[in-house]
Amino acid sequence: MSDFKIQIERFGYAYGNETALRNITLNVRRNSILAIFGPARGGKTTLLRSINRLTDIGEPGTHSGRILLDGQDIYAPGLDVASLRRRVGMVFALPVALPMSILDNVAYGQRLRGVRSPSRIQDLVQQSLEAAALWDEVRDRLDAPATSLSGGQQQRLSIARVLALEPEVILLDEPTAALDPISTAKIEEALVTLKRQYTIIIAPHNVQQAGRVADDTAFFLMGECIEAGPASQLFTVPRDQRTEDYITGRFG
């Protein structure tokens, strides 16, 4: 088996005439955290959404190249998109609690798969909430509406909801963009623990966050991957002038 969980090969994506991603080649190691960073509108979100094919909904676009998950092309005809999305979970920038109970939120994905056993659901919900560092705060009110949680809690709920799917890969699109520093720290801690079991790709909120959590990093600028490599190398001795300019805060 390849060391790489995900291989992105000359991948491109365009909305009509507008190119969002151009010729991206990038490998993601198993059980690591890859941080994709760079200025806004660099294609980070589009890449994340392409990896679990959420690009299929919303504004229509076209892709080129390949994305392989365990060596298998996720754009292959006949592929079951729903099961792909269960293997590759996504956490969005803004916390979204579905208007149902906390428990129902976490159990949502499994129930869609037809899992009905209450004990199995209960176990999964507890494990997922624990892994997302939310269990202690909500254990007594699992039946409360999820919308009553704070923003930081809702974002950890979103993570728990993805974990409950028992995915292989977790995508996080600026998961702490709307959160306070304490919630941010909790989520970052959780991520570092989670990479033992999962492969994680994150579009971090800022360069500092990338430095705190990432094993590998990739710098995206205007739809292109300028430079990719281990975080230790990319942040200390970037090869490309543009990467250095961005990291040192000269633009962005």
Partner: peptide, 9 residues
């Protein structure tokens, strides 16, 4: 619908 979503289920 996008062709992809039709195949799922």
């Amino acid at each position: 619908v996008p062709a992809s979503d039709r195949r799922s289920s």
